[in-house]
Amino acid sequence: MSHFGFKRERFDLAPHQALLADPVAGAYASFEGWVRNHNDGRAGVLYLEYEGYEQLGVKEGERIIAEAFARFDITKAHCIHRLGKLEIGELAVWVGVSAAHRDAAFAACRYIIDEVKHRVPIWKKEHYADGDSGWVNCEACAAHAADTPPLK
């Protein structure tokens, strides 16, 4: 049973939330990441494009959720990340965790979204109203890391 997945189209959360149900679970915590219309102090984001290296992304996502099971006393956990073009307000990522008690559910949910953002090979391109566009975390690096060797 897979715990991490990508979806290229909008999807209904209800069936995914239902997978977290369990008689021992007294808590359900979730995180939803939504597409916002500004980033890094700059307004005018029109839409985002997410691109993923799916084969490695699924492996890394599954590893993160396995780590969450090892670290926290949780019952079930799932994460879904969207790919493709997303409009403002759309759901970009969902994490759902069930547990006997809320502390573990909150902590595991936080752990999973933080690790997914840092480790899963997903890239986000912002498209602005003025016609500009850029890959988040890459363009600034390209501008500021010109004297840094890449293989570090």
Binding site: L56, V93, P121, W123, V136, C138
Partner: peptide, 10 residues
């Protein structure tokens, strides 16, 4: 082989 630029999920 895949070279992986800084990621930006979420």
């Amino acid at each position: 082989v895949v070279f992986i630029p800084p990621v930006a999920g979420g």
